[in-house]
Amino acid sequence: MQVLFFGATADAVGMREVEIDFSADAKAADAFAAIVQKFPQLARHKLLFAVNQEYADGGETIKNGDELAVFTAVSGG
């Protein structure tokens, strides 16, 4: 699955996207925990998550082809 990073999280992991395999029917919360485990430097940030360009609360079931994103609290304006 494609995982996207932006701003502070992109700088922290040193890339803007990465392909990670998750088990079929994984919960989004488990996928995000696995991402933070793979990139422990993310843990010092307060993170927000999205699945398919919608904010995720972790309860979503993810499937092949989904677009995941990990980013920090937003600061536009």
Partner: peptide
């Protein structure tokens, strides 16, 4: 917008 729209400033 400052709370919900995924835009970041450096």
């Amino acid at each position: 917008l400052k709370r919900t729209v995924p835009i970041w400033k450096k």
